[in-house]
């Protein structure tokens, strides 16, 4: 590609350093371009800033604004109440329970996704015949969308005809009301979510493992480190930036979980899986309580902003080397 580039070709053909004439031309050109740049900058950045402005910056400010008011059923602000909405939320047991449930969900999903994804990646990172087939299978859940995952797993969790309870019956274990028992409902949505995240996480970890130079392991072999020692003292430190990246991505993604909850539990039973985003949706679009929903949105935004911010800070430091 570089070779097909016209200027390189021409220089090769004439086979001499650019003469004074050419340099002058370059300077003039640069000068003109710099004058042009401003116009191009408007042209190139305009559309993006327009879209970001209307659908990201404005709504953020608007949400912040709404969170300081009471609203009518159309979402129009009526009475300024200052931080009262926030105080109400922080003293609401139901909301605190929702925060707690979200915390359990996010930590559960992140931890198990990382453990399972890393396990799959480590197992797939060897040179044996047919390994490509397994790698393809491990990435397969990447192609499965929220609603499809939810439907597949809803069927498995079905208390009477679902395969999980059938297996339980077969093994003479007690059957479980997967989605209608508050504790098991959380387990069920976490499981489904981990399964959904698995393909992507596997792919990222696998790529990271492959990029660790082989000679590091050769050197460790020669110097007498067991493969267990190598995993903890070479592999994990080497992929720590990826490890961290996956953790943050998964956390943010599970904080935003909506479709899964909507399809599988609708926030139930008794609010056990009423996670933050689902709450926002219900308060705003089911109950018409836009001020409360806006306040909840700001809380969510703050949480996610903090995580993202930490990610940037630490990625800039490249974690540990």
């Amino acid at each position: 590609m570089i070779n097909s580039f016209p200027s390189v070709k021409r220089r090769r053909q004439t086979n001499q350093a650019p003469g004074p004439k050419e340099e002058v031309r370059a300077n003039v050109k640069n000068f003109e371009l710099q004058k042009n740049d401003k116009y191009y900058a408007w042209l190139f950045l305009g559309p993006s800033f327009l879209v970001l402005g209307i659908f990201v910056f404005y709504p953020m400010l608007r949400t912040l604004y709404l969170s300081l008011f009471l609203t009518d059923s159309f979402g129009r602000p009526t009475v300024f109440v200052g931080l009262q909405n926030y105080l109400n939320l922080l003293t609401s047991k139901v909301y605190m329970a929702s925060i707690q449930a979200t915390g359990v969900y996010v930590i559960g999903v992140t931890a198990f996704t990382i453990i399972c994804g890393l396990l799959l990646a480590a197992v797939a990172n060897q040179k044996i015949r047919g390994i490509e087939f397994f790698r393809t299978i491990f990435t397969a859940t990447m192609g499965v969308s929220v609603s499809v995952s939810a439907i597949f797993w809803l069927f498995m969790f079905n208390p009477s005809i679902g395969v999980l309870n059938q297996i339980a019956l077969f093994l003479h274990l007690p059957t479980v009301n997967w989605l209608t028992n508050p504790h098991w409902a959380m387990v069920s949505v976490i499981t489904t979510s981990v399964w959904m995240h698995l393909g992507f996480t596997f792919l990222i970890f696998f790529g990271a493992l492959q990029s660790v130079p082989k000679t590091l392991y050769d050197a460790a072999d020669v110097s007498g480190a067991s493969s267990r020692y190598q995993f903890f003292h070479i592999t994990l430190p080497m992929i720590s930036p990826t490890f961290f990246f996956v953790a943050v991505i998964t956390m943010i993604s599970s904080f935003k979980s909506f479709g899964l909850i909507d399809l599988m539990t609708a926030g139930g039973p008794t609010n056990a899986t009423n996670l933050l985003v689902y709450r926002i949706y219900k308060d705003a679009f089911v109950d018409g309580n836009y001020a409360v929903a806006s306040t909840e949105s700001i809380v969510l935004a703050i949480i996610i902003a903090i995580i993202t911010f930490i990610q940037f800070k630490l990625l800039a430091k490249r974690v540990n080397y």
């Binding site: 020669v222 110097s223 430190p237 540990n320």
Partner: peptide, 19 residues
């Protein structure tokens, strides 16, 4: 296995652990 051969090795890429 290499660790039981009681030898040391220097690699072209040096194989230093960056962390």
């Amino acid at each position: 296995p290499p660790k039981d051969r009681n030898l040391s090795m220097v690699f072209q890429s040096y194989a230093l652990y960056p962390f």
